[in-house]
Simulated assay, not measured.
Amino acid sequence: MIQFPAVRRGPLRAISARLGFAVVLVCLIVLIIFFDRDGYRDVNEDGLTLLDCFYYAVVTLSTTGYGDITPVSESARLANILIITPARVLFLIILVGTTLEVLTEQYRTNLRLQRWRKRVKNHVIVCGYGTKGRAAVGTLLENGLDRAQVVVVETNPAAVRQAQADGLVVVEGSATRSTVLKEARVEEAKAIIIATDSDDASVLVTLTVRQLTAGKVSIIAAAREAENAPLLRQSGAHHVIVSSATAGRLLGLSTTAPPLIEVVEDLLTPGQGMALAMRSARRDEVGLSPRELTELVIALFRRGKVLALTDPEGTTIQTGDMVVYVRDDRPQAVPAMP
């Protein structure tokens, strides 16, 4: 099931609004009848009281119509034609408003689903919206990816609601099932981020994605244990991040070299100061040393291989290289108006 982000009103608030509107409508009709009460005939022929006006308004709007009070003057009949009859239709719409709202919502959902399926392409699928999945989505959005280009696959109802609240499209189901991944348009995706809670589920998702895409989609998987990383790569993952080993190394750095952990946290935390970035080498930079560029270059990415600046092949920029550098990620101050 595909869930779209939506802002919903509470049921009590919706019912209260309909009830209030119905009461206002009844009171309006009562006033119209009361001011023209001489144009109505009662079976008792003693004239209409305020209570009679309420009685006539209620039985008329609810289409009960006992016939004991009838309009006889031209003005009363004209008011029934132009005002009370349309009000009766509106009153019935209010009574069945919940059903109409459900039908309308279903139609809108189907229409959104059709439009989404037509335009979704080159998107990123995130399997799992736990701590790792939310952090991955946050990084994607901070790097300029449109929220509409992110699709979350999740089974946990709480995580599904959280993803919807974050404005993301959610495919509710297990990412290990090919039908669920097809609903997420895995064949049209640019990348798959696998952030499940267990390594065995990650392996199964990776195998399923590779089977459906024939290796054409980039697969990035997270592994809890380092011993499972080779298995994920053999299953088809292009990149594997070992969360436990990474956390362990950071813990070790925080003990032996505390300033280094602050640098790493600065690089990983958006908006703090420094951030890692990558761009294509420009034509006028080909042949230059990475150290000659204005940015602080830390590595080159060439034909699927990372080249350190100490590597003999990384001393000169070539055509097609990707430059990995450190950029200033601090919020830019808005200049004061003169």
Rank of each mutant, 00 (worst) to 15 (best):
248 G>N: 06
287 G>H: 00
68 D>W: 06
120 V>E: 04
175 A>H: 05
268 L>E: 11
105 E>T: 12
337 M>L: 15
19 L>V: 14
156 N>M: 05
44 N>C: 11
215 G>I: 07
138 G>E: 13
241 I>T: 05
222 A>S: 10
118 K>P: 06
134 R>Y: 07
321 D>M: 04
109 T>D: 13
73 S>T: 10
190 K>A: 13
15 I>E: 15
227 E>Y: 10
171 V>F: 02
73 S>C: 06
49 T>M: 05
101 E>T: 12
19 L>K: 14
171 V>Y: 00
250 L>P: 00
229 A>C: 06
267 L>Q: 07
298 I>Q: 06
199 D>I: 00
31 L>I: 11
94 I>S: 11
205 V>C: 04
9 R>A: 09
303 R>Y: 08
224 R>T: 10
274 M>S: 15
320 G>Q: 02
48 L>T: 00
306 V>R: 11
238 H>R: 07
9 R>F: 09
119 R>W: 13
307 L>F: 01
136 A>T: 09
317 I>F: 01
182 K>E: 14
266 D>S: 13
14 A>P: 04
34 F>E: 07
164 Q>M: 14
48 L>S: 02
89 V>H: 08
317 I>C: 05
337 M>S: 15
174 S>L: 10
168 L>M: 05
257 A>P: 06
213 T>H: 04
193 I>E: 01
247 A>Q: 09
51 L>R: 12
266 D>M: 11
142 E>R: 12
67 G>Q: 03
195 A>F: 00
101 E>Q: 10
7 V>H: 12
5 P>L: 04
202 S>R: 01
264 V>P: 07
119 R>I: 13
312 P>M: 03
264 V>T: 07
320 G>Y: 05
68 D>P: 03
27 C>E: 14
